[in-house]
Write a protein that binds this DNA or RNA. Structure first.
Lengths: 157, 157
DNA sequence: AGTATTTCTTGATGTACATCAATGCATAGG
DNA sequence: CCTATGCATTGATGTACATCAAGAAATACT
């Protein structure tokens, strides 16, 4: 577990990399994302304070995700092998499974407006720290669509 | 770890249940799914031989998923607490994370046709064992849409 | 075997969101 | 301070898929 500092914009992992590290965020903000075959970015996960950011690809297979820093960030880095040896944090693992299950359920069963409302409730602090187009990317919609949703919601109040 | 037999159609878990069991499928087929606020089913996961089926909700919180049997099925049942005590199968946990990551990436970045093609490649044996409407539900589309996709694909050949 | 029920398909229409294009604003860098 | 680049918004149009409705085919039930 090595502590390192990275500057905003630093790239920690590229698609296709084999070395699969795990990043525990101490302060700052990471993100993981993919680029689809049309060149479009889709944010897989934001990684604020105390989050674990990692590609869940199996050991020794190429990763699918890019990981980079959206802010100056302090992280603890470990390899998966290290973590497995020293006995991983099961609570954290289960919490992650829960998070991913929720994400899948959201993507399958809710329209864009509901996903946005859920996001603002679940991650209230993230929305002020990143451009809206990244929120849109996380939600699986375009910035234009998000703009119209926010517009509509603010009128209602 | 108790071995039990369940008949096709048996319900193993309902939304809101607290007791969170884990089901390891020995033979047969389980499925987990949600029902959205319009009453529509969305299949979260199929559980054929050797799969682990469980709700990833945190301990002592209400579950979000229904789990039932699509075929006569033999399963090994354990509680999460038991599994945690006896040291869980980390490889299986990591594999599950990988599966879920792939699912999220699929849902975010691919259209219905690509998701279907990916599904047939990844789970070639499931498609013969369940009605197509369940495949559609897993893919996040309607049976009608799936029918048209298959139609189109078969013409191409 | 015969009826009921579910499943699959096809067509017509509707809609949530994407795409494209233009404009105003903010932010960053020299 | 000024310009360049990125970001957010708005309108017009396009499209992938949903919904609705009907009929055919498969399956299950007695």
């Amino acid at each position: 577990m090595k502590k390192i500092n990275v500057k905003k914009g630093a790239v920690l992992q590229r698609i296709g990399d084999i070395s699969s590290k795990v990043f525990l965020v101490e302060s700052g903000l990471l993100r993981s994302y993919i680029i689809d075959d049309k060149g479009k970015e889709h944010i897989y996960m934001f990684g604020p304070e105390n989050w674990l950011v990692a590609d869940s690809c199996e050991p020794n297979t190429p990763c699918q995700l890019f990981i980079d820093a959206l802010e100056d960030t302090i992280i603890n880095v470990a390899t998966k092998e290290e973590l497995l040896k020293e006995g991983p944090d099961l609570t954290a693992l289960l919490r992650r499974l829960d998070t991913m299950q929720n994400r899948i359920i959201m993507l399958m069963s809710s329209n864009a407006k509901k996903r946005y409302e859920h996001f603002t409730k679940t991650y209230p602090n993230i929305i002020q720290r990143v451009p809206l187009k990244m929120v849109a990317s996380y939600l699986g919609i375009t910035p234009e669509a998000l703009s119209r949703i926010r517009n509509e919601l603010s009128k209602k109040k």
